[in-house]
Design a protein around this nucleic acid. Structure first.
Lengths: 355, 355
DNA sequence: CCGATCTATGTCATCGTTTACATTGCCCTT
DNA sequence: AAGGGCAATGTAAACGATGACATAGATCGG
């Protein structure tokens, strides 16, 4: 008597097995699972009973193959460890889940090659939609679009000639307000530490920075603008270069393009004995919860990350329902809380879109 | 002449179209894509040429259906916004990607119902393996196992009678060391703020806390142990209750079970004018990078999250290669850096397993 | 009581691959 | 020159579900 071979994979039960046990045809079983009202209740319950008894689980692969549509989306993000993007992910996930879709998660690490591979893989998996934070405006989504596969781009736009739905956050304006405020505070040597040049949001924040200085009639010192990796290490490196320059006027304020970089920047300040907010005013994109713990607290720009994900998910749902419609762009607003620490005001545009 | 209907989904090209164009049979095309050496190089390149010309992308669904195996894993985690778990995710993702698997990401929000739904969905999608941080020890994975579908449980064990590979972090020991140290520092009113009772790691950390006090011959005050949600809100609530009790000896130290809770706890301290490290010693599980920014810096327990994910992925790969083998449990070590701020020492066990 | 109508269910081709098996040449050996 | 062996490719039956169409039985009006 052989011991029970637990790991010998048993043949999975199929719709045919259920049909046999319930003494009906496979078509009837299929109809029962599709809740077709034409099936007599007695038959239906017999089928259900049989299915339960056999532990039948429908094969989504077979169904998708036959129906020529799948119920999963590919979510391609640049960095799974970036809290901003995890919040986006959660927003997408909630919408997907409540509409019955699954999410295939892909992490590109800001590498165009990984991105291209994942786009290809999304196509192979025949997902019914793709949501992406592209590594650059020229991400190879053309082929997907040519096949009519809906693409939603999040946080960063694609080439304007591509017909893709887009959800953005107006970070240029937020950057400008932040620098406006630094100037109002009397700061003059204002620096900007941002992400890789290729990344839209990184450049956009520099643009806002420039606009503010320009408008105030202040000179723009290219030495004060640093492009670095969108992480702690990048922030550290940029801050080190920025603060280590001998014989120049000391930096009085820094606009930092995301919360991961901010950690690195703040570490460097600390190592150099500079007090954030006091010696160097700091404004950071992303309202990481820990920023409030510093004394005095540093300023943050609130980005509606969860809403971004939600809106993206809803745009995709919408496009799946009514395919032919023209591409839409939704712009959400980043908010810089007022100086007096009042909470960020509710934004009319955002709430309207989240309906 | 009708305008080009961009969104009219064109019929996807299949292996048959490629075969026709290359003037071979579908079998040959299939063989070319499987790099079968039996195909004559001339034929192979003709096929490849045809495929490229038609923009052919293989249909993974059909392939999986036919081959009765898929190349995706389900990754079911409790909270996508928990940095510990995102690091785990990245560890899994890296292993999966380099072995050619895709990840279907599922976020349970610590809700057993969502977890059950996702387990079911994993079965429907015929993933070839499941990695999970279960919401409780009784998560319904039985059916998956009965089908021979490999399950790897991460960070939290399942019922010991289930034959699943397990990767854990010895957080009980780490908790004990942390409390040992608080005691050595002369603290006596030591509290513990942890996650939901049902969650293994939450209870485990309390156990370590108890062991330390017991061993030191100190009394255990149940009022000092708080179970709360594993997030900022939970930490805030627990700390409020803990520090708001009138007429009792003030709390001198708190062991906090994760970094998200720590934010809430530290906010409450701040609101109450208590200085972390000085008035109340704080030790936190998870080495969130921002913890080093506080002055004086609070202590953290380093959990090898990325390695946890990596090991889990490797265990799954291993099991897929050689199915019958008995279930294994790997225990990783959490480390509490020495008082003098020296970096966490390299752990022999961990490095051996990561080989 | 017959045909029309309707209801409940069955038949079977199909989705796009893979792969066991069959087939076709060709070369080589004796 | 016949036949064995091999290399390269073709044929066709799966995989598991769906749904257009067919069919059998019940119901009903005249």
């Amino acid at each position: 008597m052989a011991p029970p071979q637990f790991c010998e994979r048993p043949a999975l039960t199929t719709i045919r097995d259920v049909a046999r046990l319930a003494e009906v045809s496979t078509a009837t079983v299929s109809r029962v699972f599709a809740s077709d009202p034409a099936v007599r209740p007695a038959t239906a319950s017999r089928v259900r009973e049989a299915a339960k008894q056999l532990g039948y689980v429908p094969n989504t692969l077979a169904r998708s193959l036959r129906q020529q549509t799948s119920t999963s989306w590919a979510l391609i993000i640049a960095d799974i460890e970036n809290p901003f993007l995890t919040q986006v992910t959660r927003g997408v996930e909630d919408v997907a889940q409540s509409a019955g879709y699954s999410l295939v998660l892909c992490n590109t690490d800001e590498q165009p090659e990984k991105e291209a591979a994942y786009l290809n893989s999304a196509e192979q998996y025949r997902v019914s939609g793709v949501l992406i934070t592209p590594t650059s405006a020229t991400s190879p989504v053309d082929q997907l679009l040519a096949r009519g596969l809906p693409v939603i781009t999040m946080d960063r736009p694609l080439r304007p000639d591509l017909a893709v739905d887009t959800v953005l956050i107006d970070s240029r304006r937020a950057a400008r307000s932040a620098v406006d405020r630094m100037i109002a505070h009397g700061r003059r040597q204002i620096a900007c530490i941002t992400g890789p040049r290729r990344v839209f949001t990184a450049s956009e924040r520099v643009l806002g920075y420039r606009e503010s200085l320009l408008e105030a009639g202040l000179p723009i010192d290219e030495q004060l603008i640093h492009y670095a990796a969108f992480n702690e290490q990048g922030g550290r490196q940029a801050a080190d270069e920025l603060l280590g320059r001998p014989g120049v006027a000391p930096v009085e304020a820094i606009l930092v393009a995301n919360s991961m970089m901010a950690v690195g920047v703040l570490q460097v300040l600390r190592e150099r004995g500079l007090r954030p907010s006091v010696d160097v005013e700091i404004v950071v994109f992303d309202d990481a919860p820990w920023t409030g713990l510093l004394t005095p607290a540093i300023s943050v720009i609130h980005q509606p990350a969860y809403e971004l994900g939600q809106v993206a998910g809803k745009l995709l749902l919408d496009r799946l329902r009514t395919p032919g419609q023209p591409a839409r762009t939704v712009m959400l607003t980043a908010t810089l809380p007022a100086d007096d620490d009042s909470p960020p005001r509710d934004d009319a545009l955002t709430t309207a879109l989240l309906g």
